[in-house]
Design a binder for these strands. Structure first.
Lengths: 154, 154
DNA sequence: ATTTCATGCATCAATGATAGTTACATGAGT
DNA sequence: ACTCATGTAACTATCATTGATGCATGAAAT
């Protein structure tokens, strides 16, 4: 539990949802991730607010993807789950009174800000459709099958 | 205490040491950082092992810088303190059995690895001398004084 | 209508890492 | 000897994610 795995987890869940046209319950999704249904609902709640996914109660209820996979980037998902801190390292104090610390914060902060911008940009350049393609491509590699097929059975 | 501030803290301490030719005690260094002397010794222990700083016991003892500031990069310092995790986000499991998670890890991991490489490279491009210069430049800005002076009093 | 299923949400415990503190041993200098 | 300062172990505090439980809400099936 050392690192925040919400982005990784929600992407995992989304790809499973993308593979099934019918709604998937948070219990079913939680099983594939070996976690608790409440954890799944917690992260998906943020996506629901932005309209990326949809949830329905009662029999046959569950979660479905509400947007075209090509229209949602990893950055969109990252922001939907609350844009958690990307870096594990940071400053000692945000408002230092010491001139030395000001200089350290300035230099260190410049590197971190640049790295953050680039990472977010790289998240923005990958869509859920890309992720799905990577998944199917990986499956094809393992099965040593052709990569030109549009639809693979599960 | 949300983020790891060891790198920020140790750089702060190093710049203070660079300003004073005489050894500084961990108690004095801790005061400037508003922390505990043991915390200072803990982070500086890693630098001592690599020969970046030197410590001496007894009267007049304390910590001194043992290398030319221009020869030590921020990346050297980062590695000396144990190369702690840079990112707060990561995978759910490092050895997933699920093909979907494999794909997610591959795509997400690629972005993170690239960002890590770039961040470490940017750390490697900054030396302690650069940091010291940035500090003195900041002081000069505040004092509206010349920047061509070699030595500034403290 | 009642039962069943599934989400929505509040609340609390578990976990793991840094940060902070205390205590004591070691060694250098006066 | 006595004092100063590091070296290190051990413990507590803090904070965020994660996991778990309980209960209310609402939709579908019987």
């Amino acid at each position: 539990m050392s690192r925040d795995s919400r982005l990784s987890g929600v992407l995992h869940v989304l790809l499973h949802m993308a593979e099934q046209r019918r709604p998937l319950t948070s219990e079913a999704l939680a099983e594939t991730m070996r976690t608790n249904p409440v954890v799944v609902r917690r992260v998906l709640a943020g996506l629901r607010e932005r309209g990326y996914v949809q949830s329905s109660k009662g029999h046959g209820g569950g979660w479905t993807i509400a947007r075209d996979l090509a229209d949602v980037s990893l950055r969109d998902i990252y922001e939907a789950i609350g844009a958690p801190a990307l870096f594990a390292i940071g400053h000692r104090s945000e408002a230092p009174g010491c001139a030395v610390e000001l200089a350290v914060n300035a230099v260190l902060g410049a590197s971190l800000r640049e790295a953050e911008e680039r990472l977010l940009a790289s998240f923005g350049a990958v869509t859920l459709a890309d992720l799905s393609t990577a998944f199917h491509h990986g499956l094809a590699q393992r099965a040593a099958g052709p990569t030109t097929r549009g639809h693979h059975g599960h």
